[in-house]
Amino acid sequence: MKGKTCGLCGKGDGEIRQEYRTPNGRVAKNSVSFAHSWILPAESCRDVSECRLKLESVQLEKQLTIHGDESTCLSVEPVPRCLPGCMPIKTTPVTVGFSCLQSDSQSSVFDRSVDLKQTTQAHLACNCNARCS
């Protein structure tokens, strides 16, 4: 089975530099991003058996001006976030790459190169109110 497996424990082929493969086949930048990529997102915050998290691209809190144009920077890898109607009760800082696009651009952020690296908060546990989405 050497080299014919894949998943959380790598490919089992003896190569160690690309062991952090995410479910979509990309190589994660570090072990934290790798672990977060394998979170199974919840469908609804009403089900108490689920972790109430989803993976999404996050926007850099500050807006940048690049080449004279207002730009919006989005993470190129997904970050765990609480579902709508839920508030984070445990977070951890993660450093992720951000791609900066002109504010009116519609291209996919996950296919973009990294323009800068910044720290953002990943949600690890959420508390949901009675009127969650």
Rank of each mutant, 00 (worst) to 15 (best):
G3Q: 11
C6Q: 04
C6T: 05
G7V: 00
G10A: 08
K11A: 04
K11L: 04
G12T: 14
D13I: 13
E15S: 14
I16P: 02
Q18A: 12
Q18T: 13
Y20A: 15
Y20I: 09
T22K: 10
N24M: 02
G25N: 03
R26K: 15
V27Y: 05
A28I: 07
K29G: 07
S31C: 12
S31I: 14
S31L: 12
V32E: 07
A35N: 06
H36I: 00
W38S: 01
I39N: 09
L40M: 11
L40V: 13
P41M: 14
P41S: 14
C45T: 01
C45I: 05
R46I: 12
D47A: 05
V48R: 04
V48W: 00
V48P: 05
S49D: 05
E50C: 04
E50M: 09
R52T: 05
R52H: 14
L53W: 05
K54F: 08
K54Q: 09
E56W: 04
S57H: 11
V58T: 14
E61M: 09
E61W: 05
K62C: 04
L64F: 06
T65S: 13
T65W: 09
I66A: 05
H67P: 00
D69V: 13
T72G: 09
C73E: 13
L74V: 11
L74N: 08
L74E: 08
S75T: 11
P78E: 13
P80I: 12
C82P: 06
P84L: 00
P84I: 00
G85L: 14
G85C: 13
C86Y: 15
M87V: 12
M87P: 00
P88L: 15
P88H: 15
T91W: 08
T92A: 12
T92I: 10
P93H: 07
V94D: 03
V96Y: 02
V96K: 02
V96P: 01
F98T: 01
S99H: 13
S99M: 06
L101Y: 10
Q102D: 02
S103I: 10
S103W: 09
S105P: 03
S105K: 14
S105I: 11
Q106G: 13
Q106T: 14
S107C: 02
S107A: 07
S108R: 11
S108G: 06
F110V: 06
D111T: 03
S113Q: 08
S113K: 07
V114F: 04
D115A: 11
D115K: 08
L116N: 03
K117W: 07
Q118K: 13
T119D: 07
Q121K: 07
A122P: 01
H123G: 04
A125V: 06
C126K: 08
N127S: 02
N127E: 03
N127D: 02
C128R: 09
N129K: 08
A130N: 12
R131K: 06
S133C: 03
S133L: 09
S133D: 10
